[in-house]
Design a protein around this nucleic acid. Structure first.
Lengths: 233, 233
DNA sequence: TGCTACAAAATTGTATTCAAAAATCAACAC
DNA sequence: GTGTTGATTTTTGAATACAATTTTGTAGCA
């Protein structure tokens, strides 16, 4: 009986809406600074306000939305100061994920990361930035998954979500791109050697180098996001 | 006008209820595994179900409550596996807070921490465990505040809240208590020297040593909490 | 034209209601 | 005594209604 209820997970409307609203934020449908018009959204989605308001509360608590009493919710914006605040925390979490991943990585998991790495290198060689980012995201996700720590994953993902508010078509300089690629080579070596300390250090450095790119993007276009969120590397 | 709205912060019922429910959980009024009876709580607090449900969603997302679709909310419980999951993450965050604190600590802040340290040492000498914990908590909070990173603080506090679900009157062994005290001596030296790396290492080790105490407490009394949450050291 | 005051409209926060799901209870069969 | 079934009660999730607050529009005045 308890087993049956566990193999048939239920979901509620508010939970679905949390995901839906996240997608709308990350896709650019709702941009930083935008008001979230409750009734309009309800009309559009064909639901009542109650579960939507519940979802807004969750996203408010996560920092993706700002809840303004009596004035509704607004999509959060990211300043350079926010970046300077979030990145060290993300760095600490990612460094830990590197250590844990090396401790727990299976051969199959490593093989997959290596395959993705080669694919990403191909995109780098051909100058295909969007594809590079897509595969790059997969690699980072594989490392996080290999760490096998749901609490870590939840916290990292929550912060990564906030970073995604800084949504631009990032044009990384060739120099930074080459640097990022070298960092990924180091990561692969560390993973192969299951050298947690080394991976931890590389990941932390990698993120620190990424920080300036994100801040530059904010400086160039604060509040003028274009299109869907693109990850940085 | 925007300035005026900012100097007069408003609050909503759901936010108050988030805090109130947290207090109820930490105080032991609601214990791990307990169902959260919505209507009874509303009758007791003299409010309608809507803001209460909104508050439950927030606490569910934070991990203090488990939301069971169609069956309501239940106060989360902590297993040893949860501890093994949460503590490395807390360790990484606390290590970072140590580094940041050393970089940013004012003389006044250090003086306050030192005073609290001596007070705590006095309680240790006299065997006054509850007072030791109370002051100990203050010291850890001062270090976190000196780090001056709200994102870090929010994440750390959220995890610390979950740890508080393991609520027992911890009887630390004399051996562990002496060890903890020595660790705090090291912390004070590192803070005085503004040696971030050293403090980071000590804090991380301190937490790792605390982990076993918490797990032991869970083993001895899982689900049988007594009285208000007591911090560990 | 710009400012102020007021009214109307829109939006937000909370309370209440309704429908669906879960829990509990009672009756019956083995 | 145990297990099953059906009815009843309770609880939960979502929709709707109501009150309060904010925003917008209009009129009057300098």
């Amino acid at each position: 009986m308890n087993q049956i209820s566990e193999i048939a997970p239920r979901t509620t409307l508010h939970e679905e809406l949390v995901g839906r609203l996240r997608d709308m934020i990350f896709s650019g449908e709702l941009k930083g600074g935008d008001r979230v018009p409750e009734q309009k959204l309800c009309d559009m989605l064909g639901i009542s306000r109650t579960p939507l308001r519940e979802a807004l509360k969750v996203l408010g608590n996560e920092g993706l939305l700002e809840l303004l009493p009596n004035r509704g919710a607004r999509v959060a914006t990211l300043s350079e100061a926010d970046i300077d605040e979030i990145f060290p925390v993300m760095g600490a979490l990612e460094a830990l994920s590197g250590e844990l991943a090396c401790a727990r990585l299976t051969d199959a998991e490593f093989a997959e990361i290596r395959a993705l790495h080669y694919q990403m290198a191909l995109h780098h060689t051909r100058g295909e930035l969007a594809d590079y980012f897509r595969v790059n995201q997969q690699i980072h996700e594989c490392i996080l998954k290999a760490a096998a720590n749901p609490t870590l994953e939840a916290q990292y993902t929550s912060l990564a979500g906030r970073i995604r508010l800084a949504r631009f078509r990032a044009n990384m300089t060739d120099k930074r791109w080459d640097q990022a690629m070298r960092e990924h080579e180091e990561m692969l070596c560390a993973l192969e050697a299951r050298d947690g300390k080394r991976l931890s250090e590389v990941l932390s450095r990698h993120l620190e180098n990424k920080r300036e790119t994100v801040k530059q993007a904010i400086r160039e276009g604060a509040g003028e996001a274009h299109g869907p969120a693109v990850a940085y590397d």
